[in-house]
Structure formats: structure tokens, C-alpha cells
């Protein structure tokens, strides 16, 4: 039993990371209707920036703050420069542009920092809390804490601030929002900036576990896709719940289903994605799209 709870806790820790990347995907999807295939690579790039700052002797938490600010600015810049020209284009064009961005960012990181794997310092102490035979490592607790803080701040932003209200207005109806005097284009850029920031959090959290390299986020992105699909691509709450569920499912399947083991764990998100899309395409918390012919 203690072993089972142990797996559960580890699943939650992994799930929190998927949840934050899934949240980034959902933010962009809600604002621009784009599934951003480059989200993981943007997070990876931000993580490299954090690594560079730490290497240069900046204290970790200061480096993290600077990285998040840079990620925010970078996300806004990408929306302005890369995404704006294809706004409202067919889905295929959007998918291809974000894939282009995926390839570009990945190669750029390899160019600047090489493809060799790097050790990323963990911001949390190494030990573990012992609670009735279950080891709660500080790093898992720290990950859960950081993700919870980020979610809380986002909730406050969207729920209680004027700019959050404007963002919700744009997400729900851009044309009416524009008529109300909201600068829609500015809000869209802000949405991308926020998403890049949230994604960067997931990158920094996952880097100590996976080691830092340009392909680091490839697998994480698939789990985040599964999480966002499970929760519903237009639901931030769904992304978080979906992330935790996928994290737990992955850990339990890897530990207890012999056929799956550690090498075929990537099949779990695949099964989740296909299952959800076949039986409940809008996800657990999403709204079903109504189509008018």
C-alpha cells in the first residue's frame, strides 16, 4: 500500500509538470485557436536561458525570475512576428507555422548551446519527508508547490483584474471585445506571453529530472497534449486536472503493468488522446463545439 501511495505521489509530481505545459497550450488555444506545437521547444529555450544565467553566477531564484520575464517578452514577440501574419488562416497553415517554429527553436538552441546534455541544478533540497513509509521528496513537493502558486496567480489574474477580464472577453468573443474598446491584438500578444511564461515554468521544473538538452521537451509535450485533450482544449481547469491524471496514469502503468514498463510508457498518453477523442472529443471540462452548417 505504501508503495502504491509512493507511486501516486510521484505521479502527481510528474503530472504537475505536464499540467503547467498543458496550461500553456490551453491559454494559446483559447486566445488564438492554435495548438502550439512549438510550446515545448519554447519552454526548453527558456530553460537554457535560465541555465546560462545560473552558469554566469546569478542566484537560482533571481535567474528564474529573469527567465520568466524573458519568456514572457519572447512569447509576445513570437505572436507579433510569427503568428500575426497567419492569424485566421486555415488550420493546416497554423499547424505548419508552429511546426516550423518547433524546428527553428529546437535547432537554434542546439546551435547556441550544442546538443550535449547538461546538468540543471535543482532549486530544491535533496532530502525527503517521511510520512508513514511514504517518501515525499522535497523536489516533488517543491514542484507541486511552484505549480500551485502559478495556477493561483493565473486564477487571480483572470478572475480579479481588469486586464484578466479583458483577456476573458477576447477569448470568448473577439469581435464584441473590440467593439468595447479592448485592444484585441494587444491581448492576443499578452496571451502568448503568458503561455510562454507558464511553459517556461514547466521547462525549469522538468530540467533537473530529465537533464537539459534541445530535445528535452519532446516527450513532455506529448503528455501535455494528452492532458489538454483529456481536460478539454478550452478549459484551464481541465488542463490542470488532465495533467495530474495523465501523470498518475503514466507512473502507475509504468510501475504495475509489466508489458508497458518504462520504455513503452509513451503509449499511455497516446491511449488517453485516442480514447478521449473517440468517446468525449470535447474533453472532461471542455464545451462541445456546435457547428452551424
Amino acid at each position: 500500500m505504501a508503495d502504491f501511495i509512493q507511486q501516486l505521489v510521484e505521479g502527481l509530481g510528474a503530472g504537475a509538470i505536464y499540467a503547467s505545459l498543458a496550461l500553456a497550450l490551453v491559454l494559446i488555444y483559447r486566445f488564438t485557436g492554435i495548438v502550439n506545437f512549438a510550446q515545448g521547444e519554447m519552454a526548453m529555450f527558456a530553460t537554457f536561458i535560465a541555465w546560462q544565467l545560473v552558469q554566469a553566477g546569478v542566484p537560482f531564484w533571481l535567474a528564474l525570475g529573469a527567465t520568466l520575464a524573458i519568456a514572457f517578452g519572447g512569447g509576445m514577440l513570437i505572436e507579433r512576428v510569427v503568428i500575426r501574419p497567419v492569424e485566421g488562416a486555415p488550420e493546416l497553415a497554423l499547424v505548419i507555422v508552429t511546426l516550423g517554429l518547433f524546428i527553428l527553436v529546437n535547432a537554434a538552441a542546439g546551435w547556441i548551446w550544442s546538443f550535449l546534455i547538461k546538468d540543471f541544478p535543482s532549486p530544491f533540497p535533496g532530502g525527503a519527508l517521511d510520512a508513514g513509509g511514504v517518501h515525499l521528496s522535497y523536489s516533488t513537493l517543491g514542484v507541486l508547490g511552484v505549480v500551485a502558486v502559478v495556477m493561483g496567480l493565473l486564477y487571480i489574474l483572470f478572475r480579479y483584474t481588469k486586464i484578466g477580464l479583458a483577456m476573458r472577453a477576447v477569448a470568448s468573443n473577439p469581435a464584441s471585445a473590440r467593439l468595447l474598446g479592448i485592444r484585441v491584438s494587444g491581448v492576443l500578444a499578452l496571451g502568448w506571453g503568458l503561455a510562454a511564461l507558464v511553459g517556461a515554468v514547466s521547462g525549469v521544473l522538468v530540467a533537473p529530472v530529465l537533464f537539459l538538452e534541445p530535445t528535452m521537451m519532446g516527450g513532455v509535450l506529448i503528455y501535455a497534449f494528452a492532458a489538454a485533450t483529456l481536460g478539454g482544449f478550452d478549459s484551464p481547469v481541465g488542463a490542470v486536472v488532465g495533467g495530474l491524471v495523465v501523470g498518475i496514469a503514466e507512473t502507475l502503468a509504468g510501475a504495475y503493468v509489466g508489458v508497458i514498463g518504462s520504455d513503452l510508457k509513451i503509449g499511455v498518453p497516446l491511449a488517453v488522446i485516442i480514447g478521449v477523442l473517440l468517446f468525449r472529443p470535447q474533453g472532461l471540462f471542455g464545451r462541445a463545439a456546435v457547428e452551424r452548417a
Binding site: 488562416a89 517554429l101 518547433f102 524546428i103 527553428l104 529546437n106 535547432a107 537554434a108 542546439g110 546551435w111
Partner: peptide, 19 residues
């Protein structure tokens, strides 16, 4: 040019072609 250059060229060309 560089190990990473094909990716950079690919990414840029794909995006530009879409524009």
C-alpha cells in the same frame, strides 16, 4: 555550416513559405 543549421534553415523556410 553547422550541425544545427539544417533545422534553422528548415524552420525559417517553412514559415516564410506559408507567408
Amino acid at each position: 555550416v553547422n550541425q544545427a543549421a539544417p533545422g534553422v534553415v528548415f524552420g525559417v523556410v517553412i514559415i516564410l513559405i506559408m507567408y
